[in-house]
Nucleic acid binder design. Structure first.
Length: 399
DNA sequence: CCTCCACAGGAAGCGCAGGAGT
DNA sequence: ACTCCTGCGCTTCCTGTGGAGG
């Protein structure tokens, strides 16, 4: 029986022409040939980095702008072309890219960059300064002009300070006749405040600001992308417009807009729809949100899950103290060591960052200052997620 | 105007796991 | 085998603070 069902599904998948012609175009790592509305930034970045072709050191460069405004895409595109142009000169040059948030720590950022330029670095065990020294040594020995791109550099600075950047900017005096330039990409416009003035002045020899796309611009981008991904006439203009409008309302994030289009296309295909319509976009919006929440809850450490459980079991809005008290009781009933209030406070802040709970600081005068904590995720959904959790299941929680 | 509550959140440091060098 | 370094999760100790009630 079930086999027949599957055959049916697979047959359908095989026989139907499929709505999407080229799904790779809608993937988030796809960089289109044309980057509309970013010609000026491309030109500027290219001008700043071009000296590397003439064997002189390009200025360090800082790119600002919110997520999905094309910073990474522009950088990749320019570096790619630079690499092509470099084949015409005998000069050695190497580019390395690292996303600080994905890498996580200073050490991992550095080792990733090192590996990218051909220096083998173990994933742990070395002093930071040692990794650094090896990179410098390699650059000097190979006489290569190097450009390091550090994406989401604000994350690195917020979590580990600007020591690493300071080392980088200082290292230039140790490198000759080769060179090392930095391209920093930041989503946070205020992150400059966190930098040491010396680092700042060195890092931001050049600065480019990326403004969010407007709804109109997003529409153009989506239309171009849809043209590549779908056969003609398969996407309604209304769907594209809605997609653009939704993304524009969230600070003009092109990546989100394309994601939305991709998920909507998958939904439409599953429903064997003839074309992509507004309703698919709306469903996709829900789907993405649910996915995000499920994923976030699933990957939480045990005690964060326990905290979420107490928040779910309790009243609508609670203070940190109340949450901590119920959490303590919960850990007692399942005979688990409880964490300290300080740690719980940090975990609550993390849950807030993930969007699983909402907190706001309220002062009740004589009765202290605390956080008011509640969850926006529907309790039934939270209950489903938590009761299904394999780790929590074994603990026999008293729901 | 001052006090003082109930925390927020920073700083430092601890113990652990795990690789490099010796 | 031993030392030195790292990140990570955590604790301990600490200072800072908005505003109701005195």
């Amino acid at each position: 029986m079930s086999i027949d069902i599957m055959d049916d599904v697979f047959d359908k998948a095989l026989s139907s022409p499929g709505l999407v012609q080229d799904p790779s175009v809608l993937r988030s790592d796809y960089i289109p040939d044309r980057l509309p509305f970013r010609e000026e930034q491309i030109r500027t970045v290219a001008e700043i980095l071009a000296p590397i072709l003439k064997n002189s050191k390009p200025s360090n460069l800082l790119l600002y702008g919110k997520t999905g405004t094309g910073k990474t895409a522009v950088t990749h595109r320019v570096l790619e072309r630079l690499q092509k142009a470099a084949t015409k000169t005998p000069k050695q040059m190497t580019f390395a890219y690292c996303n600080s948030r994905v890498a996580g720590t200073e050490y991992r950022v550095l080792s990733q960059l090192a590996n990218a330029i051909g220096v083998e670095i173990p994933f742990t065990g070395l002093a930071l300064s040692e990794v650094f020294a090896r990179i410098i040594k390699h650059i000097n020995q190979s006489q290569t002009n190097v450009i390091f791109t550090l994406d989401e550099i604000d994350f690195l600075v917020k979590h580990s300070g600007d020591d690493l950047l300071y080392e980088f900017t200082r290292s230039n005096s140790e490198i000759f006749p080769a060179s090392l330039s930095l391209v920093g990409i930041s989503n946070d416009l205020q992150f400059k405040d966190l930098l040491d003035p010396r680092v700042l002045s060195s890092l931001s020899e050049e600065e480019i600001v990326f403004t969010p796309y407007t709804a109109d611009q997003l529409r153009t981008i989506l239309n171009e992308r849809a043209l590549l991904a779908f056969p003609p006439g398969q996407v309604s203009q209304a769907a594209v417009n809605l997609c653009a409008a939704l993304a524009a309302s969230e600070h003009g994030d092109a990546r989100r807009a394309v994601d939305l289009l991709r998920v909507a296309a998958e939904i439409a295909e599953r429903k064997s729809a003839a074309s992509l319509e507004e309703e698919h976009i709306r469903l996709a919006l829900q789907h993405i949100e649910q996915d995000r929440i499920g994923e976030a809850v699933h990957s939480l450490p045990l005690h964060a899950k326990l905290l979420l459980t107490t928040i779910m079991l309790n009243q609508d809005s609670q203070s940190t103290g109340e949450i901590y008290e119920s959490y303590r009781k919960l850990t007692e009933t399942i005979r688990t060591e409880s964490l300290t209030q300080r740690r719980v406070s940090a975990l609550l802040a993390e849950l807030d960052m993930l969007g699983l709970i909402t907190t706001s600081i309220v002062s009740k005068g004589r009765y202290g200052r605390t956080k008011s904590i509640y969850t926006q995720v529907p309790k039934t959904r939270l209950r489903d997620l938590l009761t299904a959790d394999p780790i929590l299941k074994d603990l026999k929680l008293p729901y």
